[in-house]
C-alpha cells in the first residue's frame, strides 16, 4: 500500500511537471475545447425564437456545464498508445513491473490539474460577459457532479483505451476513434441537451454509453431532470463491461505484439 501511494505521488508530480512544461500549448488545448461555448450562442439565440423546452438561460448554463465536463473528461490515450505500439516504445513500459496503463492514467489526471486553472478563468470570464446565467449549485449537487464527471472520465478512458487495443492488430487504431467520435458527438449531449431530442432517439441513446459521458453529469450540475440511481448504475455497468473487454484484448494483444522498430 505504501508503495502504491509512493508510485501515485511520484507519477502525479512528474507528469504534472511534464504537463506544465508547455504552458501556451495547455491554454490552446483549453480553448480548443470551447465548441460548447459556440453552440451555446447558437442555442440561446434559437431558444429566444421558439420553444425547445429550455429557456435561453438554461441553455447557457447547460453548455457551460458541458464545457466543464469536457475539460474534466477529455481523453487522448488512443493516440499515445497507438504511437507507443507502432514505434515500439511500449517495450520499455512492458519491461517495468507495473501495468503500462498507469502512465496514461496519471498523465491524464495531472493534465486535468494543470488545465483546471485555465478553465476556471474562462468560466469567470463568461459570467462577467453574461451575468444573468450566474448560478450557484448547492454542495450536494456539486459533490454529485464531480462524482458523475469522475465516473464519466473513467468510462471515457476505458472505452478509448479498449479501442486502442486494436493497435495490436492494425496500424491505424485511431481511425476507429474518429468513427466512434461521430456517435459520441451526436448522442452524448455535446451538440444539444438530450431533453430536446425526439423521444425515440432519447430512448435509444440511453441504451448506449454516450449520454452518460456528457449529458448526465452536465444535467446534474444545472438541475435538469435525470434518474440519478439508474444513471450511476448504468455507468458502473458500462465501466465493468469495457474493463473486462479491455483486459481480454490486452492479454491477446500482447501475444500479437512484435515491438516494431525496436
Amino acid at each position: 500500500m505504501k508503495r502504491v501511494l509512493r508510485i501515485m505521488k511520484t507519477f502525479a508530480t512528474v507528469y504534472y511537471a511534464y504537463m506544465v512544461e508547455y504552458r501556451a500549448e495547455l491554454l490552446l488545448w483549453v480553448l480548443s475545447g470551447s465548441l460548447p461555448i459556440i453552440l451555446m450562442g447558437v442555442w440561446t439565440q434559437a431558444a429566444q425564437r421558439s420553444d425547445f423546452g429550455l429557456s435561453p438561460v438554461e441553455f447557457a448554463r447547460y453548455f457551460l456545464a458541458v464545457f466543464l465536463v469536457r475539460q474534466l473528461t477529455v481523453v487522448w490515450v488512443i493516440w499515445e498508445f497507438e504511437r507507443e505500439v507502432l514505434e515500439g516504445k511500449l517495450s520499455f513500459r512492458l519491461l517495468q513491473p507495473i501495468d503500462p496503463v498507469w502512465h496514461h492514467v496519471f498523465s491524464h489526471v495531472s493534465e486535468r490539474l494543470a488545465r483546471i486553472p485555465f478553465a476556471i478563468l474562462l468560466i469567470v470570464l463568461f459570467f462577467v460577459l453574461y451575468p444573468t446565467a450566474i448560478f450557484v449549485p448547492n454542495i450536494a449537487t456539486i459533490a454529485l457532479f464531480f462524482l458523475a464527471a469522475g465516473l464519466a472520465f473513467a468510462l471515457n478512458f476505458l472505452i478509448q483505451y479498449t479501442l486502442a487495443m486494436v493497435a495490436f492488430w492494425t496500424e491505424r487504431a485511431s481511425s476507429l476513434q474518429e468513427f466512434w467520435f461521430l456517435f459520441y458527438l451526436f448522442l452524448s449531449g455535446a451538440i444539444a441537451p438530450l431533453v430536446v431530442f425526439p423521444q425515440t432517439v432519447r430512448t435509444i441513446a440511453l441504451f448506449t454509453p454516450f449520454p452518460y459521458l456528457i449529458n448526465f453529469p452536465a444535467s446534474i450540475l444545472v438541475g435538469l431532470p435525470v434518474n440519478l440511481i439508474q444513471g450511476f448504475l448504468v455507468m458502473l455497468a458500462w465501466c465493468a463491461g469495457f474493463f473486462a473487454l479491455n483486459r481480454w484484448l490486452w492479454r491477446r494483444g500482447l501475444k500479437q505484439y512484435s515491438g516494431m522498430g525496436a
Partner: peptide, 25 residues
C-alpha cells in the same frame, strides 16, 4: 534492456524526473 536507437527517458523533463519514476516503480 537498453536499446541504442530507442529511449525511455521523458524527452521534455530532466533525466532525474524519469529516474524518480523508475525508483517508485
Amino acid at each position: 534492456l537498453v536499446m541504442g536507437q530507442k529511449q525511455q527517458l521523458i524527452w521534455d523533463l530532466p533525466a532525474l524526473d524519469s529516474f524518480k519514476i523508475n525508483g517508485a516503480v
